[in-house]
Every structure is written in structure tokens, then in C-alpha cells.
Nucleic acid binder design. Structure first.
Lengths: 217, 217
DNA sequence: CTAATTTAGATAAAAAAATATCGATAATAA
DNA sequence: TTATTATCGATATTTTTTTATCTAAATTAG
């Protein structure tokens, strides 16, 4: 896998949330925002906010705050969300359909242009406006469409096979929702989304809270 | 929000992935696993693996490895996934349906027992075996069913309202898929899942890689 | 106009996480 | 039996992330 070291990862993960809030503010006609307001919104300390925003290169004005518009532009530029990334999605099941139905992605510069599935009942149909192709055509179509990003929404035991086909088709970045880590060549980037990971954190927090409550009695 | 400080968060997020791999191994009849194999699977260093496993309390045998069964039990115990958590889900749209359709949750001790939605067309229907109730009955039914966990899959602008109703209904833990941070009383835990966060990381990694490649020429 | 307040940004310290080193234990091969 | 290899676990180091402190700039109230 491409060994692209990216520090400030927690900050990067937070940027989309800033972006949402700032977009709402702009829609409401607000032009300036100060740290304390964002801190309340994000449930974070003020210093965190300033550090996060500093990463994008914007510079606020002491005593005043940041320009909303400037922040939005800077965040999008930092994330490279100005340029549209076209992607193919494999696995038009529940999760795959959900992702295709998420309109927010357009805002993020992500455009899913085609879906693939192994199920003959799904092949040939449309899911939220995208054609579902036979999985056997993944490599060919990916290459022809010059797509560089792939999204994997298949069960864990099929994910590696799909990843191999994506790589064969010229994919250079994979967003992997299957609960396995993929083996890919050095020049391919994989970002794994383990939804269960968040639930694990929630579970541990709950256990801890119960223990704390018991301890208080 | 309940201020439950939990260190070793990255480890906790990784535990479900270990759990999947270990379950597969057990199904295949494998009883012992050593760090190098897990390290390859996880795409992580061996030391990380040992530290992660140590957190659960298991102790391996030098020169041999860890007992698969013991690890599975220890991870589940650590995450409190032995005990079933019943949850209600609000927002039976694309993402909500996907979550209800994910069979893996049973393995994690999560049981979604009912769904709620504001859309009259959805109310009264069934989604993947669960009844969809009117959102106005959320508080009442949550209280009657004694459910303590809620999953929010509604658009960002409705999430706070749903959270308030959940809290009114006695919910103590919220798994929030909306892209906002929620204000809740101190004794309620919120775990937020920002799917776009992962995409942000992927985007930055891609930009960096392009820069690196350009630099090499 | 001056003083108090709000706020950004730089520097520093603390905490957490990732990584490295080394000794000890068990299995395997000579 | 002995030497070699594989592996865990304890300790130490480095890096990353979070948190704190202080200074300077801008606004607002008196």
C-alpha cells in the first residue's frame, strides 16, 4: 500500500464537520465566525479549533474571528474537494445503495459513476440513477472510463478479490467498507472504514460509565 | 455528554477487525495464532498487535502464540459484546436500512428492535423485519421497551431534535451518523460516526501522493 | 481617548500512541 | 542434548496529539 504518511489525522477527520457548519452559516448570510462558537458546536476546546483551522492555512483576525467564506474555500482546497473524483462502487447491496443515495458526496467532490454486483438480479438494473454492471466487467469498464477511485461494499470474504480486480483496472485509491485489510501494490492507497469500530468505542464507553456509576454508590 | 475518558481508542477501534479474523480462524479449526500472522493481516507492526491484545488481558505464550478461542472471548468481554444491547433506530432511509440489514451486528451484541421515521409512507411498513413506527411515538415506545441505546440516521438538521426525544425516552447511549455534534445531558454518551471523515483522509492521502510523485520527477 | 474585553497565534508542556530494543520462553532441528 | 529459530512481554524511545500559557491585535464600553 502506498506509504503516504499524513499527520494531523484527527484534524482531517474533523474538517468535514467544520465544512458542514460553515456552509450552513454561509447560507444564513453569516460572514464571520469566532472560535468560541465553533468550539461549542464541535464540543471541543477552543485551542483545538484554532489548531485545526491553522492547518488549512487560513489566518483569522485577533479580536474578530475568521471569514466564513475563506474557511470554506481553504478547507475544500486542503481536502482537494474542489476537483471532482469519479469513482466506481462494487456491491450494490444495502450499504452500497446507501452510499449512492447520499447526496452530500457531490459537495465533497465525489461522484459515483457506476456500480457493479455479482447478483444477476441486480445486474442491468439502476440504483439511484446509476447502472449496475456485472462484476466481470469491472476491470474493463474501469479502465475505459479512466476511473481512479473504487469503493468496496461487498462482504469481507469477497473484498480482496474485488480489490485485485480494481487494481487490475487501474484504480489507485480504494475506500474499503469491508472489515478486512486489503493487500494491494505499493502505489495504491486504501482507506478503510470500519463502522463496527465506532460501535466498539461506544460499547467500551458504556461499560466504563456503568463501572463509574457503581463506584459512586 | 458523559465525560467518559477512554484511552487506547485506536486499539479499541481495531478490536472488531481482530475479532472477524479470529472468528474466521476458529471456523477453520485453527486454535493458535501468532503475532506475525495477525500483523500481516492487519497491515500493522508486530508490536502494535501485541499491545492491542495485551489490552484485553490475554497473555500469549512465548515461542508459540495466542489461543484463538481465548482471544475471541477476551475481546468480546472487553467490548462487553457478550451482553446484548437493544437499540432503536431513527431514520429508515438508505443508511438506516443498510444498518438494519447488516447481520454482523448480532455478532457484536447489537440488536435493533424497532425503527422510526417521519415519512407517512414508511410508517407501518417493515424494513428488514423491523416495524417502522411514527417518529411521534419514539419517546413513548422507547420508554415502554426500556431501550437504552439509540441510532440516529436522519439528516443533520433533524438530528438534534431526535436526540432530544431519545433522551426524553430514557436513552443513555446514542450512535450518531448525522454530521453534527449533539447537545445532550451529562449522563448520555454519544458516539459520532462521520463517514465523510474517512473520505477526507483518503482525499488528503491522494493529494500527498500526487505531490510526492511530482517531486520525484 | 482610555480601559476592559474578546480573540487569534505563538510557544511550551503534558498526555497518548506508535515504534524500537532486549531478555526470556518454547518449539524444532542438528 | 545442544544450538537455532520463533515468539511473547517488559522497558525505553520517539513521534504525534492534546492541552495550557502568554502576547498582541481589534473591538466595545465608559
Amino acid at each position: 500500500m502506498a506509504n503516504v504518511k499524513v499527520p494531523k489525522l484527527p484534524t482531517i477527520r474533523r474538517l468535514p464537520t467544520y465544512l458542514y457548519k460553515l456552509s450552513e452559516m454561509r447560507k444564513a448570510g453569516i460572514e464571520i465566525v469566532a472560535t468560541p462558537e465553533l468550539a461549542r458546536y464541535m464540543n471541543l476546546g477552543e485551542i483545538v479549533i484554532r489548531k485545526d483551522l491553522a492547518l488549512t492555512g487560513v489566518t483569522g483576525q485577533p479580536g474578530v474571528g475568521y471569514k466564513v467564506r475563506e474557511l470554506i474555500d481553504a478547507i475544500k482546497r486542503y481536502l482537494n474537494w474542489n476537483n471532482v473524483s469519479e469513482a466506481v462502487l462494487v456491491g450494490a447491496g444495502a450499504l452500497g445503495s446507501a452510499l449512492m443515495g447520499y447526496e452530500g458526496f457531490e459537495e465533497y467532490g465525489l461522484r459515483i459513476i457506476a456500480a457493479f454486483d455479482a447478483d444477476p438480479l441486480k445486474v442491468g438494473t439502476e440504483v439511484r440513477g446509476r447502472s449496475v454492471f456485472d462484476i466481470d466487467r469491472l476491470e474493463e469498464l474501469t479502465r475505459r472510463l479512466q476511473v481512479r477511485m473504487g469503493i468496496i461494499c461487498v462482504p469481507a470474504d469477497q473484498a480482496q478479490d474485488i480489490a485485485d480486480r480494481m487494481v487490475a483496472g487501474g484504480i489507485k485509491a480504494i475506500w474499503n467498507f469491508a472489515n478486512v485489510s486489503l493487500k494491494v501494490p505499493d502505489d495504491v492507497i486504501v482507506q478503510r472504514e470500519v463502522i463496527a469500530g465506532g460501535f466498539a468505542v461506544l460499547s467500551v464507553k458504556m461499560s466504563r460509565k456503568l463501572l463509574e456509576e457503581d463506584a459512586q454508590d
